[in-house]
């Protein structure tokens, strides 16, 4: 598997990260080298092995799904990058027709 410039551009689009042309060519090179090394995993036959996405320990606990109070709005307001009338302000999403 070779990592191409087009693939990195596609990944930047998927992950919503703006990359400069220099970054794209640098990441293409670096990811290609990394994936080359990571191919090593293909030496192992894992067709009969269950994946571990998370090590399940017998101690994990679920709690009741109860409604609890959240943070007071005024404590969260100072975090917002832009705010208007107590709401988060963002650039326009819906285009005028």
């Amino acid at each position: 598997m070779h990592i191409t410039k087009q693939l990195v551009e596609h990944l930047a689009k998927l992950s919503l990260v703006e990359l400069s042309p220099e970054e794209i060519s640098k990441y293409t090179q670096e990811l290609d080298a990394l994936m080359g090394y990571f191919e090593k995993l293909n030496k192992l036959d894992t067709s009969h092995i269950d994946p571990t996405f998370h090590v399940e320990l017998p101690t994990h606990v679920f709690r009741e799904d109860e409604v609890k109070s959240s943070f007071p709005r005024e404590e969260l307001l100072p975090m917002f990058p832009a705010e208007e009338d107590g709401a988060i302000k963002v650039p326009k999403i819906i285009e005028a027709s």
């Binding site: 995993l41 293909n42 192992l44 894992t46 092995i49 269950d50 994946p51 571990t52």
Partner: peptide, 8 residues
């Protein structure tokens, strides 16, 4: 694949 090797 990596998650399967994680099991190993």
């Amino acid at each position: 694949k990596a998650s399967q090797v994680r099991t190993l």
